[in-house]
Design a protein around this nucleic acid. Structure first.
Lengths: 227, 227
DNA sequence: CGAATGCTTCGGTTAGCATCGAAGTATGAA
DNA sequence: TTCATACTTCGATGCTAACCGAAGCATTCG
């Protein structure tokens, strides 16, 4: 019974450790070059080149040539969402869960999910927006209420500009650590950008960790997520 | 950068064609025996036995011995959700999308997603319940409103009994064909059961297709999803 | 108690693929 | 032009795992 699309091709593509490491690295949202990805995966350049060709053929990543560099990004939000879902399952069914280190704790608190905020603070933000009726969840497609649009504008976000884009404004994304939803879509991206602009948080090196300053986290809880 | 859980193990597990076919077959929700799954995957019994052992070790399926049979089911809703997500991605990025046959059309209209209703009618039901404020979506966790509980009781569902269970009553599940949400959780399962009880629809053989009778579909649209 | 059915273990074969070194191509810098 | 860097192609190697036949248990049926 092969009802439905062919899963195996895609899962096998993700299922190689080297490729999985590349994809995980790309979850940080930044475009990485082929050599950087090779280093991330711990493999030689030729091997990485072969893997990247397959990932692109499989539609999981996009490549953009610039000079003699080749910049690679995830192919889109949907890919990121599926990867996040797999992480959730792997975290739950994963065998012999080792004691989470400080690095892991930081990841669970706040991290980048491709281009928006995830982790404890990410889901907290989402819940708060929903509780205050600034967003309304109608299943997968989340919409911004008029009050929400006003609040976002007050926070310094060009909602009208975002709405003009082709990408959906709001989207729900399932969090692997919290097993709850956080906000994706172009608004989710804009919020994270604005948070960084305001100096509330900075990305930690090349990792997915988003490090909030004490003052930044206080401001975040006051202005964006006052439950 | 191996931030986050180990995806590769899990994806590799799903990534083998034989195992993927088994998992797809199990998405129909019914428990299948090892030999049935071997037939689904088109492999010999010993091979299937090995695959099933790995799937169980990986936490993707559960096995229950009964006499000389071994009944296999998916390990839970979360597994089904991830598989459905992979199908969505595969349907989108899948190369050379063949013209959907009549079988495919039926799948897209109404099918079983592990234990609840998915496809066009599934998302329609979800949207209708949300529009009439019978359910309220707060991200991933959907809740039943008092009005919703009354409506469900009127439809012949023992809401109180379901609430006593350990499983969540409502859950959002992303649809691979519609790319929208449908209703999972114990209420989702109960609704599908009730729909079959009323004779509105029957499962098509061993496939995931749910075949509505003309009268059944009319009743469904009138009683459950009047937009 | 046989006989049949369902599943599992074992051993050996095979195919696929990840891997890297070396050589090749393109871009940019000196 | 010449050299260096970034990436790709090619060829060879080695490992993993999918696969099945045969034999071994366990359960059920006659």
């Amino acid at each position: 019974m092969k009802d439905g699309p062919d899963i195996a091709r895609l899962a096998a593509l993700i299922g190689d450790p080297a490729r999985a490491n590349m994809l995980s690295a790309l979850m940080a949202g930044k475009a990485l070059t082929a050599s950087e990805l090779a280093a991330e995966a711990g493999i030689a350049a030729p091997t990485a080149s072969s893997h990247l060709a397959r990932l692109e053929a499989g539609g999981l990543v996009r490549q953009r040539r610039q000079g003699r560099h080749k910049y690679v990004t995830l192919a889109g939000d949907e890919v990121a969402r599926v990867l996040e879902g797999l992480m959730g399952l792997a975290a739950g069914t994963g065998h012999l869960r080792t004691r989470p280190g400080p690095r892991d704790a930081a990841l669970r608190k706040a991290r980048v999910c491709y281009n928006h905020l995830a982790g404890d603070l990410g889901t907290r933000l989402y819940d708060s927006l929903a509780a205050r009726a600034l967003i309304r969840a109608e299943g997968e497609s989340v919409s911004l209420t008029p009050e929400g649009a006003a609040a976002m504008a007050a926070f310094g976000i060009d909602v009208a500009g975002l709405s003009r884009g082709r990408a959906p404004l709001c989207r729900a994304c399932l969090d692997w650590s919290e097993r709850r939803t956080h906000l994706a879509g172009s608004l989710g991206r804009a919020l994270l950008t604005r948070i960084e602009e305001l100096g509330w948080a900075t990305r930690q090196g090349e990792s997915r960790i988003v490090r909030f300053s004490p003052a930044g986290e206080a401001a975040f809880r006051r202005d964006l997520a006052p439950i």
